[in-house]
Design a protein around this nucleic acid. Sequence first.
DNA 1: GCAGACTAGCGTACAGTGTCCGCAGATAGC
DNA 2: GCTATCTGCGGACACTGTACGCTAGTCTGC
Lengths: 260, 260
Amino acid sequence: MEDWWRLTGEHPVTRSLRLLWHGLPPARKGPRPSLTLDQIVRAAIAIADAEGLDALSMRALARELNVGTMSLYRYVQDKAELMHLVLDHVTVRTVEDGTPATDWRTMLETISQDARQMYLAHPWLLQVNWSSPVLGPGSVGDLERTLSSLTELPFSDRERIMLVTLLDAYVTGSVRQEVLFDQASALTDLTYEEFWELQLPFLEAAMESGRFPTMAAMSEDSFSGGWEETFELGLTLLLDGVEREVARRESASHASPPND
Amino acid sequence: MEDWWRLTGEHPVTRSLRLLWHGLPPARKGPRPSLTLDQIVRAAIAIADAEGLDALSMRALARELNVGTMSLYRYVQDKAELMHLVLDHVTVRTVEDGTPATDWRTMLETISQDARQMYLAHPWLLQVNWSSPVLGPGSVGDLERTLSSLTELPFSDRERIMLVTLLDAYVTGSVRQEVLFDQASALTDLTYEEFWELQLPFLEAAMESGRFPTMAAMSEDSFSGGWEETFELGLTLLLDGVEREVARRESASHASPPND
DNA sequence: GCAGACTAGCGTACAGTGTCCGCAGATAGC
DNA sequence: GCTATCTGCGGACACTGTACGCTAGTCTGC
């Protein structure tokens, strides 16, 4: 394990955490900064929302803010750090949409559906290929909200975290399929129907080859399930599975699970 | 709906499909091509496997194949088309790992676990932000394999496709979490433990603020669930949900579902 | 065999990306 | 007032994808 960052000062992750939790340090000597971190992050989100992730370059951001490109590096160390701030900031949005707690199943449904809507509103989020290695106020707040709705679920703390994680995996995986398909549709200028129209001659030849007997025998509407319907089916199955586990535990002991 | 591509010949999607299903057309006049599509695709996969998606540029690929960069454009129209070929080709891999069919649950487990392993072996796949808008021999073959293991499941064809889709969503979402985290870990030169070490001062201050009561009360090992364990939990829940639906249908009518 | 048409290889050039380096001017502290 | 620190940002560089067009190689028809 190399400690290269100890020789040069602050680790980049610590720097990102500092910015997230405390913001920029107060200005001391020198000209007053003309921008705030919040302005930069908001402008970045606006560009990505309007034109997609690829449009979000440092130059585009500088243009949007009417500053020189290199000025931005006075506020963030590099683009990765900017994206950490951006990702956490978008997550803050979901915290504000508070919903009164009822039962855990309804809460998990609502939270998952809200998350889906959030990702559909910011499809570029699912195209970012960095995991934010930092937990900022946004993501911690989001996690708090979710966990606070699971207190009546007879699972250990550890199991709750695992449940939240896998639900997030399902939501992001599901919406990413949809987002990428919609993008391909827009890029190729094809609707769903037109895509199948182009595909058909090749599929028909393949089906006649005898190599795909199960698919050849499928009915015509097999691919007609929509994205939302598919998402809801998966969510239902997941939550049914949780219910089954809950019932199993309650019939086994009526006791709370070990809180290890 | 603009038909701009009709003016210039073949739609890019049709061209990709042609390459996928029939390969390059036979050479007519002119020098013999020095490469095959297969060579190009394999070299691209090797680069991505060895050095990640960002390392896969047309220049890097040309260097690997000892040709000029622009030569590649004699074989593929642009990088997007190359990626369509690459994505379908990687999928071919999974078809060859045939497993004898037993019951639908075991099959779905195996297929999902195999898919997870495949993605872990090619983590860059989950960082590609194009959905392949084409169904080539690889993806159709993969789908055939999966569907042929679901024949005894009392679901309609349409429901089967939805089930396969949502399972894929879950697998990709789950592995992508892991892949992105591992990447962040490598980029920041931090282990999981070191990450938490840096995070802790900020989290402790946040917990003392009283803003996150549920999280502040959680036990120390809450985040100790591993990626594989979390994946298996979610898969179990999903399949438990399917079982519950199957049982519901069998107790309702003992009849096959409508095959609409 | 030759000319014309077609084809593969690929160099040059361009527009775009992220960001290093360092200069000029503005502010604070002594 | 002087020195140290700080902001803004231009010029430069290495890298990306790919349009354009030249050269040389192969096939076909006469």
